[in-house]
Write a protein that binds this DNA or RNA. Structure first.
Length: 325
DNA sequence: ATGGTTTTTACTGCGTC
DNA sequence: GACGCGGTAAAAACCAT
């Protein structure tokens, strides 16, 4: 048994390599099939044999400055570690390593160890000295925790951090809890990124209740002039579909149904989650996959009644459009 | 605060396995 | 008889004004 699994694995590897080679080999001249050479100074890709210019205006990814010796290169280069908004000081402050090793990797003496420990302590104290910094630190920790619990990607956390920073710098915090604003920022950024989580889902992992979240969310949006479009029902579809273990086919049909409904103008005013749930249910019916309304209502946190009402409308809209087409 | 819209809750009847 | 589904009325929640 292990024999076969090993062989298939190596076969897969060989296939992947062959594919890569194929992609490399495509770089030949379409006229005379000579070798192509990229001339980065003129931003062109030319054929070595016939001189045909295949690509023009390629992007030069190199630096825009020139350096004539090593020291000039050091002074002109502006590259360093990337900054990140997810750390309260943009990741730019100095940190003292936790390993008690010197620069050569040797262990420190106990005296040195104690010294480093004291330095670490003070470094941390200075780094997070004033209240705003401490505030930020806690908030970003919360954002990170909630984002993990909701399975939200890095970029969502980043924008959530940015939103929180803006709220902080505009003095929107007084009178509102750190958690409230952090949660609202995360909720907003998740929607902005097109990977929305419903209010219910967010309040599940947050320490604040739904009312406070909606209140602070609205407030933050207004004050920061954030323009956030209503969540697209389609963005819920993949998650629900996989929770219900439905085929890609029904997922696709669910999207189609939603598009049809959008064209028919049925989407406005209705809850996006409800629409997504209904589309999933309807699509499952069309593909003869067995899902009950109660299952869908469970994973989507939507009442069965809403699913019924929506999915009738969805199917009607689909019928009408197919007939008129 | 209020009124209009949407969603939820609760209940009922029908058909099927 | 349990289950899935469809419908209804009233209550609750939500939203803009």
């Amino acid at each position: 048994m292990s024999d076969t699994t090993i062989r298939t694995y190596t076969e897969e590897m060989a296939e992947a390599e062959a594919e890569q080679e194929e992609q490399e080999a495509v770089r030949t001249c379409p006229e005379c099939s000579g070798r192509l050479v990229s001339d980065s100074e003129h931003g062109e890709t030319v054929c070595q044999d016939c001189g045909l210019v295949v690509e023009e205006d390629a992007v030069d990814r190199g630096p825009e400055w020139r350096a004539f010796d090593a020291s000039e290169k050091d002074s002109k280069s502006r590259v360093g570690a990337p900054t990140t908004n997810m750390m309260h000081d943009n990741g730019l402050s100095t940190n003292i390593g936790w390993q008690d090793k010197d620069a050569y990797g040797r262990a420190l003496s106990s005296r040195q160890r104690a010294k480093m420990q004291r330095l670490r302590t003070w470094n941390e104290r200075f780094r997070t000295r004033d209240s705003k910094e401490r505030n930020l630190k806690q908030a970003l920790g919360e954002i990170d925790r909630m984002a993990s619990a909701l399975g939200l990607p890095e970029n969502v956390r980043e924008t959530a951090s940015v939103i929180y920073r803006r709220a902080l710098s505009e003095d929107l915090l007084p009178g509102r809890s750190i958690e409230g604003v952090a949660t609202a920022a995360l909720y907003a950024s998740a929607r902005q990124a097109g990977t929305p989580r419903s209010l219910d889902e967010v309040t599940m992992v947050s320490r604040i209740d739904k009312m406070e979240l909606t209140r602070t969310y609205r407030y933050i949006i207004r004050q920061l002039n954030l323009e956030i479009k209503p969540a697209d029902p389609e963005s819920y579809v993949p998650r629900f579909a996989s929770d219900l273990e439905l085929s890609d086919e029904s997922e696709r049909r669910a999207r189609d149904l939603l598009r049809g409904a959008r064209d028919a103008g049925l989407l406005s005013g209705k809850s996006p989650v409800g629409l997504a749930a209904a589309a999933i249910y309807a699509a499952a019916l069309l593909t003869n996959e067995k899902v009950t309304q109660s299952q869908v209502s469970d994973v989507a946190n939507i009442s069965e009644v809403t699913i019924r009402n929506r999915y009738k409308e969805l199917l009607e809209a689909a019928d009408v459009t197919t007939v008129t087409n």
